[in-house]
Structure formats: structure tokens, C-alpha cells
Amino acid sequence: MAELDPIIHQPVRLKIMAALTALSDDSQMDFVALRNLLGVTDGNLGAHLRKLEDAGYVSIEKVFVARKPHTYISVTPKGREAFEGHVKSLKKILGK
């Protein structure tokens, strides 16, 4: 049986990981851009990001740009590896 990652499998977290892994390595996505892309609320996105951060899959950095607070999120190498493994397992289930 293929190994699926229960943290990533939740639909919103799956979408978060899919969006972040679409970026090049070391790139960080703005919280608002990610929220708009996924069509979720601030609270919902924040809660799921915390779970992913606790698992070491994403890294969250809060900075000030032109005196305005910005939150940038990036996928960690561990997160990228876990996501790729999860996708591979999904494909295995489908016999791809």
C-alpha cells in the first residue's frame, strides 16, 4: 500500500503545498497572494499554515516592507520531499 501523508492530504493543506511547490526553490509567497490564489479566508489559511509549520513543511517569515507588515511563506526541503512523496503515492494508487 502506498504511503500517504495525513498532514498533506487535507484538501486546503494539499492546495497550499501544491501552490508553494509550484514556485522555484528559495522563493517565498506573500500570505495575501496565497489566500487569493486558493480562495480561502485569512483564519482558515492561518490555521492550516500553522499545522504545516509544526510539521516542518513550510517556513513562515514576518517582515516589514515600506513600514507595512508582510507574511511570506515558503516550502522547506522537508516539505517539498513530503509533497513529492505524497503525489507519487497518489499516482501509485491510480496505477500511473
Partner: peptide, 29 residues
């Protein structure tokens, strides 16, 4: 963790759709 064939298909569809939208929105710089 066990999921059905349909669930796996749906999850992969979500991944492909979100990645396509992310790449389109940010258009690689």
C-alpha cells in the same frame, strides 16, 4: 492511511489545477 481510487484521482486533480493557477498567476517572474 487508505483512500479510494476516486479520492486519489480528485486529489491529483486539485494538485494539477492549483499548480497551473499558481504558475499562471505568478508567471515565473
Amino acid at each position: 492511511m487508505d483512500i479510494t481510487h476516486e479520492e486519489a484521482k480528485e486529489s491529483l486533480k486539485i494538485v494539477e489545477e492549483v499548480q497551473r493557477r499558481a504558475r499562471k498567476a505568478l508567471a515565473h517572474g
